[in-house]
Amino acid sequence: MKQMLEYVHGNSIFHRLNPLIKLIWAFVTCVACFISSSHLFLLGVLLMTIVIAGISGVLGRAMGVFKALLVLGLFLMLFQLLFTPHGRVYFYILPGVPVTDLGLSFSLLLMLKMMAALSPLSLMLMLTPMNELLTAMTHNLRVPYRYAFVVVTALRFIPTFSQEMDQIMQAQRSRGHETDTRNPFKKVRVILPMCIPLLISSVRRVETMAISLETRGFCTGPRSCRKKLGFTLFDLLAIIIVVAVLLLSIAIG
């Protein structure tokens, strides 16, 4: 979770891209993938994401994300497969539960859709510093600063909370609590109470943060911005590519 959303420091061409473009790219691709029902197009998007990750030097991290999405995708695929009885039957998994060509194709599409739609979002977060994201949201997209700040700060605290949750789980394991059960239902029952310390410590954190913000003039009036985010030729090129991808997805259908 932590790895999927954290900014990775770098100076590649995609790191330097205007954050607005990256934001648009991620959302447009996401939407395009949901619209599209072409295996080929989705594969293309996935490939593009991998290439971008490679050029930006975050391939290792991105592969982790792909792996996580793949596991999730395979689950989705399996479910879809079991609940699509139409089409030519290849074989039966269980008596009365057939695997069909339509089912296979449709479930594969679903899996690809999810992977291709979500990976650009995760990649965008890896390649854009929080602060630039905030600027793009408030200055370009006119999201009120207060709300944009909440979104970005929530993202910023995810690693902190995930570390804290680790500590809490370890503390309970040290007292003989068995959290390493395989049964997912049991696991939820075991883990749920541990959210209480997390909740309480996050409330404490939020209180400190609120006071710290208060003493630094948060939302006292109009706000200036240190970095002007300019558009370069490459930004223009990028936006053209993004639009082209969107059109392509509509064209392919």
């Binding site: 900014y7 929080m130 602060n131 700040f149 910023r156 954190r205 943060m209 006071i211 710290s212 003493t215």
Partner: peptide
Amino acid sequence: SVFQDPESQMVSTV
């Protein structure tokens, strides 16, 4: 003002 836990006072990643 500076408070106890640096982690909770920081809003940015840089």
